[in-house]
Write a protein that binds this DNA or RNA. Structure first.
Lengths: 128, 128
DNA sequence: CTATTATATGATTTCTTCATGATGATGTCA
DNA sequence: TGACATCATCATGAAGAAATCATATAATAG
Protein backbone atom coordinates (compact mmCIF):
# COMPACT_ATOMS: atom_id res chain seq x y z
CA UNK A 1 0.00 0.00 0.00
CA UNK A 2 2.75 2.41 0.96
CA UNK A 3 6.26 2.26 -0.40
CA UNK A 4 9.05 1.52 2.02
CA UNK A 5 10.33 5.03 1.53
CA UNK A 6 6.99 6.61 2.39
CA UNK A 7 6.84 4.49 5.53
CA UNK A 8 10.31 5.62 6.56
CA UNK A 9 9.35 9.23 5.99
CA UNK A 10 6.17 8.95 8.03
CA UNK A 11 7.97 7.25 10.88
CA UNK A 12 10.64 9.91 10.94
CA UNK A 13 8.22 12.82 10.79
CA UNK A 14 6.02 11.16 13.37
CA UNK A 15 8.94 10.71 15.70
CA UNK A 16 9.89 14.36 15.42
CA UNK A 17 6.30 15.41 15.93
CA UNK A 18 6.29 13.48 19.17
CA UNK A 19 9.49 15.03 20.52
CA UNK A 20 10.30 18.19 22.41
CA UNK A 21 10.06 20.84 19.70
CA UNK A 22 12.82 22.94 21.26
CA UNK A 23 15.40 20.22 20.67
CA UNK A 24 16.42 19.33 17.12
CA UNK A 25 16.44 15.60 16.40
CA UNK A 26 19.59 14.11 15.00
CA UNK A 27 19.43 12.10 11.85
CA UNK A 28 21.61 9.50 13.56
CA UNK A 29 19.17 9.30 16.44
CA UNK A 30 16.23 8.73 14.12
CA UNK A 31 18.18 6.11 12.25
CA UNK A 32 18.93 4.26 15.44
CA UNK A 33 15.52 4.54 17.04
CA UNK A 34 13.52 3.70 13.96
CA UNK A 35 15.85 1.20 12.34
CA UNK A 36 16.23 3.10 9.12
CA UNK A 37 19.55 2.98 7.20
CA UNK A 38 21.34 6.21 7.99
CA UNK A 39 22.39 7.39 4.57
CA UNK A 40 19.13 6.46 3.04
CA UNK A 41 17.27 8.31 5.75
CA UNK A 42 19.51 11.28 5.16
CA UNK A 43 18.15 11.66 1.65
CA UNK A 44 14.58 11.26 2.79
CA UNK A 45 15.10 13.96 5.40
CA UNK A 46 16.56 16.25 2.81
CA UNK A 47 13.49 15.91 0.63
CA UNK A 48 11.28 16.66 3.60
CA UNK A 49 13.28 19.82 4.27
CA UNK A 50 13.09 20.95 0.67
CA UNK A 51 9.36 20.36 0.63
CA UNK A 52 9.02 22.64 3.63
CA UNK A 53 7.88 20.15 6.25
CA UNK A 54 11.08 20.19 8.24
CA UNK A 55 13.82 22.63 9.02
CA UNK A 56 17.39 21.42 9.34
CA UNK A 57 20.20 22.92 11.27
CA UNK A 58 23.82 21.94 10.89
CA UNK A 59 26.60 21.80 13.37
CA UNK A 60 26.56 21.31 17.11
CA UNK A 61 23.03 21.22 18.51
CA UNK A 62 21.80 20.85 14.98
CA UNK A 63 19.24 18.39 13.72
CA UNK A 64 15.73 18.45 12.38
CA UNK A 65 12.60 20.16 13.65
CA UNK A 66 9.13 20.55 12.21
CA UNK A 67 8.73 23.61 10.03
CA UNK A 68 5.06 23.91 10.91
CA UNK A 69 2.59 22.58 13.40
CA UNK A 70 2.14 18.82 13.37
CA UNK A 71 -1.60 19.23 13.19
CA UNK A 72 -1.20 21.11 9.93
CA UNK A 73 0.61 18.30 8.11
CA UNK A 74 -1.49 15.43 6.85
CA UNK A 75 -0.28 11.93 6.22
CA UNK A 76 -1.12 12.46 2.61
CA UNK A 77 1.17 15.51 2.43
CA UNK A 78 4.07 13.25 3.25
CA UNK A 79 3.00 10.34 1.09
CA UNK A 80 2.75 12.35 -2.10
CA UNK A 81 6.38 13.30 -1.76
CA UNK A 82 7.51 9.71 -1.98
CA UNK A 83 5.04 7.90 -4.15
CA UNK A 84 2.80 8.36 -7.11
CA UNK A 85 -0.63 9.04 -5.71
CA UNK A 86 -2.42 8.33 -8.97
CA UNK A 87 -2.54 4.68 -8.07
CA UNK A 88 -5.06 5.54 -5.38
CA UNK A 89 -7.41 6.72 -8.10
CA UNK A 90 -7.30 3.48 -10.02
CA UNK A 91 -10.02 0.92 -10.13
CA UNK A 92 -9.30 -2.55 -8.81
CA UNK A 93 -7.56 -3.93 -11.87
CA UNK A 94 -5.47 -0.86 -12.49
CA UNK A 95 -7.80 0.91 -14.86
CA UNK A 96 -7.34 4.62 -14.22
CA UNK A 97 -10.44 5.73 -16.04
CA UNK A 98 -12.89 3.03 -15.12
CA UNK A 99 -16.34 4.35 -15.95
CA UNK A 100 -18.00 2.05 -13.48
CA UNK A 101 -18.64 -0.67 -16.00
CA UNK A 102 -16.23 -3.15 -14.50
CA UNK A 103 -17.77 -5.72 -12.24
CA UNK A 104 -15.75 -4.69 -9.21
CA UNK A 105 -16.26 -0.96 -9.38
CA UNK A 106 -19.19 -0.65 -7.00
CA UNK A 107 -17.44 -2.63 -4.32
CA UNK A 108 -13.99 -1.23 -4.85
CA UNK A 109 -14.76 2.46 -4.86
CA UNK A 110 -15.90 2.72 -1.23
CA UNK A 111 -12.83 0.87 -0.03
CA UNK A 112 -10.54 3.33 -1.75
CA UNK A 113 -12.65 6.24 -0.57
CA UNK A 114 -12.14 5.14 2.98
CA UNK A 115 -8.44 4.92 2.43
CA UNK A 116 -8.14 8.31 0.80
CA UNK A 117 -10.18 9.92 3.50
CA UNK A 118 -7.97 8.22 6.08
CA UNK A 119 -4.73 9.68 4.79
CA UNK A 120 -6.38 13.00 4.15
CA UNK A 121 -7.90 13.64 7.51
CA UNK A 122 -5.19 12.26 9.76
CA UNK A 123 -2.34 14.55 10.64
CA UNK A 124 1.09 13.53 11.80
CA UNK A 125 0.45 14.43 15.41
CA UNK A 126 -1.68 11.28 15.52
CA UNK A 127 1.13 9.06 14.32
CA UNK A 128 2.78 8.32 17.62
CA UNK B 1 -2.03 -2.39 -3.93
CA UNK B 2 -1.68 -5.22 -6.43
CA UNK B 3 1.49 -5.99 -8.34
CA UNK B 4 1.43 -5.54 -12.08
CA UNK B 5 1.79 -9.29 -12.47
CA UNK B 6 -1.21 -10.00 -10.25
CA UNK B 7 -3.27 -7.52 -12.25
CA UNK B 8 -2.26 -9.22 -15.49
CA UNK B 9 -3.19 -12.59 -14.09
CA UNK B 10 -6.57 -11.42 -12.88
CA UNK B 11 -7.36 -9.78 -16.19
CA UNK B 12 -6.42 -12.90 -18.10
CA UNK B 13 -8.37 -15.24 -15.87
CA UNK B 14 -11.31 -12.86 -15.90
CA UNK B 15 -11.29 -12.74 -19.66
CA UNK B 16 -11.30 -16.49 -19.94
CA UNK B 17 -14.06 -16.73 -17.36
CA UNK B 18 -16.14 -14.45 -19.54
CA UNK B 19 -15.63 -16.42 -22.73
CA UNK B 20 -17.31 -19.40 -24.30
CA UNK B 21 -15.94 -22.27 -22.22
CA UNK B 22 -15.98 -24.66 -25.17
CA UNK B 23 -13.38 -22.62 -27.04
CA UNK B 24 -9.84 -22.39 -25.69
CA UNK B 25 -8.46 -18.86 -25.55
CA UNK B 26 -5.17 -18.22 -27.25
CA UNK B 27 -2.39 -16.63 -25.33
CA UNK B 28 -1.82 -14.33 -28.29
CA UNK B 29 -5.44 -13.27 -28.19
CA UNK B 30 -5.27 -12.41 -24.52
CA UNK B 31 -2.07 -10.53 -25.08
CA UNK B 32 -3.68 -8.44 -27.79
CA UNK B 33 -6.99 -7.82 -26.10
CA UNK B 34 -5.59 -7.01 -22.70
CA UNK B 35 -2.40 -5.27 -23.71
CA UNK B 36 -0.10 -7.64 -21.90
CA UNK B 37 3.36 -8.46 -23.33
CA UNK B 38 3.03 -11.86 -24.94
CA UNK B 39 6.01 -13.71 -23.56
CA UNK B 40 5.53 -12.32 -20.15
CA UNK B 41 1.91 -13.37 -20.22
CA UNK B 42 2.92 -16.80 -21.38
CA UNK B 43 4.79 -17.34 -18.17
CA UNK B 44 1.96 -16.05 -16.04
CA UNK B 45 -0.40 -18.42 -17.82
CA UNK B 46 1.92 -21.29 -17.18
CA UNK B 47 1.92 -20.59 -13.47
CA UNK B 48 -1.84 -20.50 -13.49
CA UNK B 49 -1.90 -23.88 -15.19
CA UNK B 50 0.55 -25.37 -12.72
CA UNK B 51 -1.51 -24.05 -9.84
CA UNK B 52 -4.53 -25.84 -11.23
CA UNK B 53 -6.69 -22.87 -12.17
CA UNK B 54 -6.34 -23.30 -15.93
CA UNK B 55 -5.86 -26.11 -18.36
CA UNK B 56 -3.72 -25.62 -21.42
CA UNK B 57 -3.81 -27.37 -24.75
CA UNK B 58 -1.14 -27.07 -27.35
CA UNK B 59 -1.33 -27.12 -31.12
CA UNK B 60 -4.17 -26.27 -33.46
CA UNK B 61 -7.34 -25.34 -31.60
CA UNK B 62 -5.30 -25.17 -28.47
CA UNK B 63 -5.33 -22.45 -25.87
CA UNK B 64 -6.38 -22.02 -22.26
CA UNK B 65 -9.60 -22.90 -20.48
CA UNK B 66 -10.63 -22.77 -16.85
CA UNK B 67 -9.87 -25.92 -14.94
CA UNK B 68 -12.81 -25.36 -12.62
CA UNK B 69 -15.90 -23.28 -12.32
CA UNK B 70 -15.29 -19.53 -12.25
CA UNK B 71 -17.47 -19.22 -9.19
CA UNK B 72 -15.11 -21.52 -7.33
CA UNK B 73 -12.01 -19.37 -7.83
CA UNK B 74 -11.65 -16.31 -5.66
CA UNK B 75 -9.69 -13.22 -6.51
CA UNK B 76 -7.49 -14.01 -3.56
CA UNK B 77 -6.69 -17.45 -4.97
CA UNK B 78 -5.09 -15.75 -7.94
CA UNK B 79 -3.43 -12.96 -6.01
CA UNK B 80 -1.56 -15.25 -3.64
CA UNK B 81 0.13 -16.88 -6.60
CA UNK B 82 1.76 -13.64 -7.66
CA UNK B 83 2.36 -11.63 -4.56
CA UNK B 84 3.21 -11.93 -0.93
CA UNK B 85 -0.07 -11.66 0.92
CA UNK B 86 1.56 -10.91 4.28
CA UNK B 87 1.58 -7.25 3.45
CA UNK B 88 -2.16 -7.24 3.83
CA UNK B 89 -1.70 -8.13 7.46
CA UNK B 90 0.50 -5.17 8.26
CA UNK B 91 -0.52 -2.14 10.22
CA UNK B 92 -0.40 1.24 8.53
CA UNK B 93 3.28 1.94 8.96
CA UNK B 94 4.37 -1.53 8.01
CA UNK B 95 4.46 -3.06 11.45
CA UNK B 96 3.46 -6.69 11.04
CA UNK B 97 2.81 -7.31 14.71
CA UNK B 98 1.20 -4.09 15.78
CA UNK B 99 -0.47 -4.71 19.11
CA UNK B 100 -2.90 -1.89 18.63
CA UNK B 101 -0.75 0.65 20.39
CA UNK B 102 0.03 2.72 17.34
CA UNK B 103 -2.11 5.78 16.86
CA UNK B 104 -3.49 4.63 13.55
CA UNK B 105 -4.41 1.08 14.42
CA UNK B 106 -8.07 1.59 15.24
CA UNK B 107 -8.71 3.41 12.01
CA UNK B 108 -6.54 1.28 9.81
CA UNK B 109 -7.73 -2.15 10.78
CA UNK B 110 -11.30 -1.84 9.43
CA UNK B 111 -10.01 -0.55 6.11
CA UNK B 112 -7.80 -3.58 5.64
CA UNK B 113 -10.55 -5.88 6.84
CA UNK B 114 -12.79 -4.56 4.12
CA UNK B 115 -10.11 -5.14 1.56
CA UNK B 116 -9.37 -8.67 2.67
CA UNK B 117 -13.02 -9.54 2.72
CA UNK B 118 -13.34 -8.08 -0.75
CA UNK B 119 -10.72 -10.30 -2.34
CA UNK B 120 -11.92 -13.26 -0.36
CA UNK B 121 -15.57 -13.21 -1.20
CA UNK B 122 -15.41 -12.14 -4.83
CA UNK B 123 -14.90 -14.83 -7.41
CA UNK B 124 -13.54 -14.39 -10.88
CA UNK B 125 -16.92 -14.69 -12.56
CA UNK B 126 -17.59 -11.20 -11.23
CA UNK B 127 -14.50 -9.72 -12.84
CA UNK B 128 -15.93 -8.91 -16.25
C1' DC C 1 4.99 -37.87 -41.99
C1' DT C 2 5.29 -33.23 -42.07
C1' DA C 3 3.84 -28.46 -41.85
C1' DT C 4 1.49 -25.61 -38.88
C1' DT C 5 -0.24 -23.93 -34.73
C1' DA C 6 0.40 -23.40 -30.01
C1' DT C 7 2.33 -23.42 -25.42
C1' DA C 8 6.80 -23.95 -22.43
C1' DT C 9 10.95 -22.18 -20.78
C1' DG C 10 15.69 -20.50 -20.08
C1' DA C 11 18.74 -16.55 -20.73
C1' DT C 12 19.13 -11.90 -20.78
C1' DT C 13 17.97 -6.97 -20.41
C1' DT C 14 15.84 -3.03 -18.36
C1' DC C 15 13.79 -0.33 -14.80
C1' DT C 16 12.80 0.93 -10.23
C1' DT C 17 13.41 0.76 -5.42
C1' DC C 18 16.15 0.25 -1.64
C1' DA C 19 20.57 0.64 0.39
C1' DT C 20 25.63 1.74 1.29
C1' DG C 21 29.98 4.32 1.40
C1' DA C 22 32.72 8.15 0.82
C1' DT C 23 33.24 12.94 0.68
C1' DG C 24 31.75 17.90 0.74
C1' DA C 25 29.79 21.91 3.03
C1' DT C 26 28.41 24.45 6.96
C1' DG C 27 27.41 25.86 11.63
C1' DT C 28 28.92 25.97 16.74
C1' DC C 29 31.87 26.62 20.38
C1' DA C 30 36.05 26.99 22.93
C1' DT D 1 40.92 30.40 14.32
C1' DG D 2 40.54 25.57 14.52
C1' DA D 3 38.37 21.34 15.90
C1' DC D 4 34.39 19.01 15.71
C1' DA D 5 29.52 18.01 14.93
C1' DT D 6 26.11 17.58 11.72
C1' DC D 7 23.55 17.85 7.52
C1' DA D 8 24.18 17.56 2.16
C1' DT D 9 25.44 15.26 -1.89
C1' DC D 10 27.50 12.16 -5.14
C1' DA D 11 28.37 7.88 -7.00
C1' DT D 12 27.83 3.24 -6.73
C1' DG D 13 25.71 -1.28 -5.85
C1' DA D 14 22.22 -5.01 -4.91
C1' DA D 15 17.75 -6.99 -5.51
C1' DG D 16 13.40 -7.68 -7.44
C1' DA D 17 9.83 -6.89 -10.87
C1' DA D 18 8.80 -6.43 -15.52
C1' DA D 19 9.77 -7.20 -20.17
C1' DT D 20 12.12 -9.26 -24.19
C1' DC D 21 14.54 -12.67 -27.08
C1' DA D 22 15.32 -16.95 -28.76
C1' DT D 23 14.29 -21.56 -28.93
C1' DA D 24 12.32 -26.00 -27.43
C1' DT D 25 8.42 -28.97 -27.13
C1' DA D 26 3.90 -30.77 -28.09
C1' DA D 27 -0.60 -31.51 -30.57
C1' DT D 28 -3.32 -31.52 -34.63
C1' DA D 29 -4.66 -31.43 -39.43
C1' DG D 30 -4.14 -33.01 -43.76
Amino acid sequence: MLSQTAIYALRAVGFIAGSDPTRPILSSHLSEQLGIPQNYLSKIMHRLVQAGFLKSKRGTRGGFVLARSASKITIKDIIVLFMNIDQFEQCFLGNVKCDGSCGMHAQWKPIMSEFKSFINKNTIDKLF
